[in-house]
Amino acid sequence: MRTPWSEFWRKFRKQHVALAAGGFVLVLVVLAVLAPYVVPFDAENFFDYDTLNSPPSAKHWFGVDPLGRDIFSRLLMGSRISLTAGFVSVAFGAVIGTVLGLVAGYYEGWWDRAIMRLCDVLFAFPGILLAIAIVAILGSGMANVIIAVSIFSIPTFARLVRGNTLALKHLTYVESARSIGASDTTIVLRHIFPGTISAVVVYFSMRIGTSIITAASLSFLGMGAQPPTPEWGAMLNEARSEMMTAPHVALFPAVAIFLTVLAFNLLGDGLRDALDPKIEQR
């Protein structure tokens, strides 16, 4: 039998790059979960003041940072933070954005205008600016960074879902559901929402990469994770002053961010091609 799921799998299986990227993400998630049990050194409280900034070696695979800590262990522990930040913030943004989009698209009129005006205003700020403002008000820290990044993911999801809702609303099966007297809630949840899922899923996966970058950027600007949290952006920020003397301190977190975001982007591309080739890119 051809369920939508098997249909999706049939198409997705052909995307070798995306499959590999998905595998990488999976490995990353497993590593992040297991990190506390597999790290060779304590990421925050192991330190050795005699080997400051020493380059990669058999003992310290990725070298030692300016405070005498093992960079490999810190990167592993940091993966938990970056992945959580990316996933949670997009999840929040997607849920709120989807609800707003459904309401705006289904009811139109006043609701639509109010919500879309709100999105316009949010759009009128460059994303990072909004995030900086929110973090400045709430105070620095990873939780507030996640809130900031979620807020600025909302309008993209709202617009996307609104567009889909407008299109689906006038399809025959929705009209017929309405004619047999189904309530608004039933129509939206049972008939319209499922039609928007694939677009949301694709966007979700593409958005995680952006969110990881934004969260890291905020930490890089000193507004995110507080030391000694091994957040990747914060690690890069700390490594900045050592660029000339110990470039490896900056190299590994930079590569980690790059590979992770790359994997999510490739996965997103694959999902898009398999689920919804018509969706617009970013």
Partner: peptide, 8 residues
């Protein structure tokens, strides 16, 4: 640890 920025 909290590194306070000027306003905080």
């Amino acid at each position: 640890i909290t590194l306070l920025e000027a306003g905080q």
